[in-house]
């Protein structure tokens, strides 16, 4: 076990400051998008996107380009093709997504084993290495967070109606196909950009766990979205501090704090749910 580094010393390091800002923003972004993705039953879709991201990274390495910049168009294209496939397939969605994500992960790992020049470890790709976050990554995350907040805020009512019931939303005149497409693109870009911090295997936790925890304790939609984003941000910061202090992989540390948050929400929600059930029954 690593004896650890003093916290003050750690916080004084520029790479740690970048990591904390990146974690805070990535966590908030995951919670924000996740609050809609969970209600729209896109949790498994985000998982499939995360796993397939390794294929995009591999492609970037093979082409000798910045993997993050290759990953964004790859993830968007991948998300659009997969969502089209899911819409038109007669197979159950979860089975289809399973085939897609396990196949892309397998192809990527085999392809990576042939790349002799690849300096980064597969461990970092799988579980995240937020300490390696660059100013370019930070700029992208800030831009994405602002874009996502503006888009979801300005179309808030359409988004809620679409989340509730698609036919009802179409009958009201909401541009459902356009919003569905934009949300999928946004989710794909968020997954692509967050991969460095969280890793391929745990990216869906960033999207799903804070939103689920928030759902358990929320009674207002806006409060639900804000709490999911706040939980995502707080858990990311706490997880990164743990990661930096004891030299542990960043992604799993953040997810452990998310799990703690979820368990607390579960404990808080349990008596209330019991009360609601008995008053209805």
């Amino acid at each position: 076990m690593n004896d650890g580094v003093a916290l003050g010393e750690l916080l004084a390091q520029p790479f740690m400051q970048r990591a904390l800002i990146g974690g805070l923003l990535t966590g908030a972004l995951g919670g924000l998008l996740g609050s809609f993705a969970v209600l729209r039953q896109l949790s498994f879709f985000s998982d499939a996107l995360g796993h397939s991201a390794l294929l995009g990274i591999t492609l970037g390495i093979l082409l000798g380009l910045n993997p993050t910049l290759v990953l964004i168009p790859f993830a968007v294209l991948f998300a659009l093709v997969v969502s089209r496939l899911v819409e038109h397939s007669r197979l159950p969605t979860d089975a289809l997504l399973n085939i897609i994500y396990s196949s892309s992960l397998a192809i990527a790992v085999v392809a990576l084993s042939f790349v002799r020049s690849y300096k980064g470890g597969i461990h970092q790709l799988l579980f995240g290495d937020i300490l390696g976050i660059s100013w370019l990554d930070l700029g992208l995350i800030v831009g994405l967070l602002l874009t996502a907040a503006a888009y979801l805020g300005l179309t808030r009512r359409d988004q809620i109606l679409l989340t509730l019931d698609e036919p009802l939303a179409i009958a009201r005149g909401v541009a459902v196909p356009l919003h569905r497409l934009l949300f999928i693109v946004l989710l794909a870009v968020v997954v692509a950009i967050s991969i460095k911090a969280v890793g391929v295997l745990l990216i869906s936790a960033f999207v799903v766990i804070p939103a689920c925890a928030s759902r358990l304790v929320s009674r207002h939609f806006d409060g639900y979205v804000v709490l999911a984003a706040a939980l995502g941000a707080i858990c990311a910061v706490l997880g990164l501090l743990l990661s930096g202090r004891f030299d542990l992989p960043s992604g799993p540390c953040v997810v452990i704090f998310q799990l703690v948050g979820f368990l607390v929400a579960l404990a808080v929600a349990a008596p209330r749910n019991q009360m609601n059930t008995s008053s209805r029954g």
């Binding site: 969970v38 209600l39 809620i160 509730l164 019931d165 009802l168 929320s218 939609f221």
Partner: peptide
């Protein structure tokens, strides 16, 4: 609509 199923998951 005939059914309104997603409502159960939405805190609204």
């Amino acid at each position: 609509p005939q059914t309104f199923t997603v409502r159960n998951r939405c805190p609204l």
